[in-house]
Design a protein around this nucleic acid. Structure first.
Lengths: 217, 217
DNA sequence: GCAAAAGTGTTGAGATTACACCCATGC
DNA sequence: GCATGGGTGTAATCTCAACACTTTTGC
């Protein structure tokens, strides 16, 4: 690790999913360098000629195997001391994946890879705790005026499941009647003429009206 | 200009001011390279060891001589083809200055420097038109839920002057009574016991309650 | 006294919140 | 038949937008 004449550019991705009604993020355990043993969000250097979004998607594919996810740029952190070994300018992204995918058994780059509740993170490497806060705040705001929750759910779902996603993200309970009124009135979802059968009264199934990002107000 | 093995990092700053009730931005005319003769927003490379905010403030000081401004990071553009001569990752900022400062007669780096209405920009170098749109959208949203307009006004001002700033940014007229009610009720400004005398009825003067960034809701 | 900008409240519509009971199913 | 989650409407409150006349000054 030598100090370059100019900063290098990296992309770091906060990957969210909902697992057991809890909002979790994917952490990797750093193998080498001054932060060896500490956890962080996955990331990697941006090679010349590759766009930032492409690097982020590649990182995501390598870590989770998933390609079709929601991805949004968050903020760029450029303080020179976050990584003591070099000045790395880190472009942060957040991503939403619909389920906690099976993780590759051994990644050559990281000691371990785990899904961890975003509200109980340890002290992270590279000042990534600030990044986690930033990502959560943005996500909480954005589900309020967009349809991006579609990327956290399968094609068909009950309104109770949709509400559980919102509650996991916001960290508080919502009123069921107001919630249903809202998402239907906004045209966020459309009813399928299907039901899910379970141990209790069957739930009507719904699908998102659009599975591409749309702002709703 | 050689193609580096890794992208370099630059900061570009959209500097806004209000001049003659119009929202303007500072443009520089590029002297060299493939975009010679075209206009762009001022910017510069980030040296190793300097934070992005510091680079942005330095750029601002060099171009306008002003230090005490509002500065906020906007977005990072990383498409490799924006500058055909090298892959430059550009971290965009926007800044607000209270008046169109006198510009240095000759900058070694730029052919000319001018304040231009943000809604009548020419085709800019480095894909900067997208940046202008992005900055304006953010600014319009942000004056709605923060006090950052303080940085576009002197210490004392009339409510009509404050309203003119909001109208210049939003590009539409506002209702005077609703506007006054709003800013007073939010505690955004406080009345001074002073008046400005002019050709007509004197206007009561106000000051911002706080001259540091605060979100109002 | 007249031209020009400053100052001032009320009303209606729409949006948001709070809240409680019946329904359909599996066991 | 009972336990469990699914499904539904209304009333009160708050927020936001629309709107017109009087006041104060310089000339």
């Amino acid at each position: 690790m030598t100090t370059a004449r100019l900063p290098t550019v990296a992309v770091d991705v906060v990957i969210f999913t909902i697992d057991e009604d809890e909002l979790k993020t994917l952490l990797v355990q750093v193998k080498k360098g001054p932060f060896a043993g500490r956890w962080a969000f996955p990331g990697g250097l941006v090679p010349s000629g590759e766009s930032l979004d492409t690097t982020a998607r590649r990182e995501l594919r390598e870590k989770t195997g998933i390609h079709d996810v929601y991805l949004e740029q968050l903020y760029t952190f450029g303080e020179p001391n976050r990584d003591p070994s070099a000045h790395v300018v880190s472009v942060a992204y957040f991503a939403l994946v619909s389920r906690p995918v099976r993780l590759p058994a051994d990644d050559p780059k990281y000691a371990r890879v785990e899904w961890r509740p975003v509200r109980k993170l340890p002290r992270l490497a590279y000042g990534h705790n600030a990044l986690a806060e930033y990502a959560l705040t943005r996500l909480q705001a954005k589900i309020g005026y967009s349809n991006i929750a579609y990327s956290l759910l399968p094609a068909e779902f009950s309104l109770a499941e949709l509400q559980a996603v919102y509650e996991a993200i916001l960290g508080r309970r919502l009123d069921r009647r107001n919630f249903r009124k809202r998402v239907l009135q906004l045209g966020l979802v459309r009813a399928l003429s299907k039901q899910r059968r379970g141990p209790h009264r069957p739930a009507a199934l719904y699908a998102f009206a659009r599975r591409t990002p749309v702002l709703t107000e």
